[in-house]
Nucleic acid binder design. Structure first.
Length: 515
RNA sequence: GUCCCGCUCGUCUAGCCCGGCCUAGGACACCAGAUUUUCAUUCUGGCGACACGGGUUCGAAUCCCGUGCGGGAUACCA
């Protein structure tokens, strides 16, 4: 009874969205930080709304952001089954007990009658709720309904007066008049338990100690806590976290963010960044730091520290975090992360990842500071592996200087005459590229011995000398060369570009645009 | 309508529980500058908030009340 036990209880009615992911993260983090257990319970009692395959997507989403569970689907556990539709006997037993204790009663009203009663109350200026018409039925009246073929639902007999206080971990004591709460349905006529009932039974049976869930359940906490009391049980501690809102401050919609967290995976957002961002939406690691790992979060996380006010989703901040995480990776890690997108875009063959590992690290490394998502990369570096088509800016840069074509031709000749390192195979293929390219991030410069005269530093010195000899302003020379080589006006340093491309391809592309 | 919750820079937040250290700190975004062959990265600087009104107090972002605004609930959904 001492081990903290927390749960995330999704309904398989749709994919895992941002809000769900966040409550999952907070429950998970609390369980881990408290040294407790984290479990998953599937609330599938609304069979009509269950969606095929939704569960798989939810579990995949959780796994993707790095959440694991100790009990639940796929892993089992001592308090199963973890699907509510497999626990129907249990609810039935509890329902009979509550009924027998007098804390619940059978209600024979049809949905239409309930609705009509509600409207009567509303018309009378009262709160619109179930009018409790069957709360005190005599046995004879009940028999009559049964005889008429009516099947009852079971409703909880709420106290009619007094106040009830729930001590929320984020909001303190929240008080409500019992009269505000109606006699809610515990079991539907078809025998299915409703959310509030199944939730109490399961939280009790699964020994749940803390419930962290969305603010929309704050009112349910009263109903549930009162049921716990009626059963002679102690309710768990509740913490109701605010909803995530869209940029406009309204409910999160498809316009603000994806409804499925796996879309972020598919678009190449680093999962650690997504986790970090979601956790940050309502919880702060410290006043001056907002990048943290899962482990760092666990070392500091306390349920009480979750922010009680709603947060708006901000794609810019998410992307900034993504970029930060990407820049943190080693080149080898980035290549591995980006591989699926490179393959999908058919930019390099699978085999290249083994045969040209270093080349790929060089190429990808040149873009490390330039992307926020793995998925952004493929289009940007296509020019390395395939003849580029010139974009508008490139065409402009080629045309800007009247002598540009002559310069390209002359520079191509110069490059052509530049010796490759002796140690390099004559059939160059891509072999002359498979050397480490130094970038700003990496101060290791290949030695001249290792590279002959085809290292970025030498290419730079040579190009500068070339410009000076001919009296060309360096900036005027660089732009047409970049255009010819890459087909665009953005990208890695020009000397890296020449180096990455290799001598033969560079010369060929320069000459092609020199005509 | 009624009930409940919330309200610090444009956004996420630190500070609030236990009033003075707050001329309110950080991050993202934005603007300017530095570096630079482009883009980006990086660095420097700038802009920018305690929703409003009353109290309590020597002193309030911090405590209390009211108003406003936002959100949630008001289901035989969860």
């Amino acid at each position: 009874m001492d081990t903290p036990r927390l749960r995330f209880a999704p309904s398989p009615t749709g994919p895992l969205h941002l809000g769900g992911a966040r409550t999952a993260i907070y429950n998970w983090a609390a369980a881990r930080a408290l040294g407790g257990r984290f479990l998953l319970r599937i609330e599938d009692t609304d069979t009509a709304r269950n969606v095929d395959g939704a569960l798989r997507i939810i579990l995949e989403g959780l796994t993707w952001i790095g959440i694991d569970w100790d009990e639940g689907p796929q892993v089992g556990g001592d308090y199963g089954p973890y699907f509510q539709t497999q626990r129907l006997d249990l609810y039935q037993r509890f329902a009979q007990d509550v009924l027998a204790s007098g804390h619940a009663y059978q209600c024979y009203a049809t949905p239409e009658e309930v609705e009509a009663g509600r409207e009567r109350l509303l018309a009378a200026g009262k709160k619109g709720m179930y009018d409790r018409r069957d709360r005190d039925l005599t046995p004879a009246q009940q028999k009559a309904f049964e005889a008429a073929g009516r099947v009852p639902s079971i409703r909880f007999r709420m106290p009619l007066e007094g106040k009830y206080v729930v001590d929320d971990m984020l909001r303190g004591k929240v008080e409500v008049d019992m009269g505000e709460l109606d006699d809610w349905v515990m079991v539907r006529p078809d025998g299915m338990p409703t959310y509030n009932f199944a939730c109490v039974v399961d939280d009790s049976e699964m020994l749940i100690s803390h419930v962290v869930r969305g603010e929309e359940h704050l009112m349910n906490a009263f109903k549930q806590a009162i049921l716990f009391d009626a059963l002679g049980l102690v309710p768990p501690r509740f913490a109701h976290v605010p909803l995530i809102l869209g940029k406009d401050g309204k409910k999160l919609s498809k316009r603000d963010t994806s409804t499925n967290i796996l879309d972020y995976r598919d678009r190449g957002y680093p999962p650690a960044a997504v986790f970090n961002y979601i956790a940050l939406l309502g919880w702060a690691y410290s006043g001056d730091r907002d990048v943290f790992s899962k482990d760092e979060m666990l070392a500091k996380f306390k349920i009480e520290d979750i922010h009680a006010a709603g947060a708006k989703f901000d794609e810019d901040k998410l992307l900034a975090l993504c970029g930060h995480y990407i820049r943190q990776m080693s080149r080898a890690e980035l290549v591995a992360a980006v591989k699926p997108w490179l393959l999908r875009a058919e930019i390099v063959p699978e085999s290249a990842f083994a045969s040209h590992a270093e080349l790929l690290e060089n190429v990808v490394g040149c873009y490390q500071e330039r992307i926020d998502r793995y998925g952004d990369l493929a289009d940007k570096l296509r020019w390395v592996f395939a003849e580029p088509t010139l974009d508008e800016a490139a065409i402009k840069n080629l045309a800007k200087q009247p002598e540009a074509k002559q310069w390209l031709a002359a520079y191509a000749d110069l490059l052509d005459a530049t010796p490759l390192p002796a140690s390099y195979p004559a059939n160059r293929g891509s072999a002359d590229r498979a050397v480490h390219v130094p970038t700003a991030k990496d101060s290791v410069t290949p030695s001249a011995e290792a590279l002959g005269f085809f290292a970025p530093a030498h290419i730079e010195a040579q190009m500068r000398a070339f410009a000076e000899q001919r009296g060309i302003k360096f900036g005027n020379l660089v732009h047409p060369i970049r255009a010819a080589l890459t087909g665009t006006d953005k990208g890695p340093g020009l000397f890296d570009v020449v180096f990455l491309l290799g001598k033969e391809a560079s010369v060929r592309r320069l000459r092609q645009h020199a005509r």
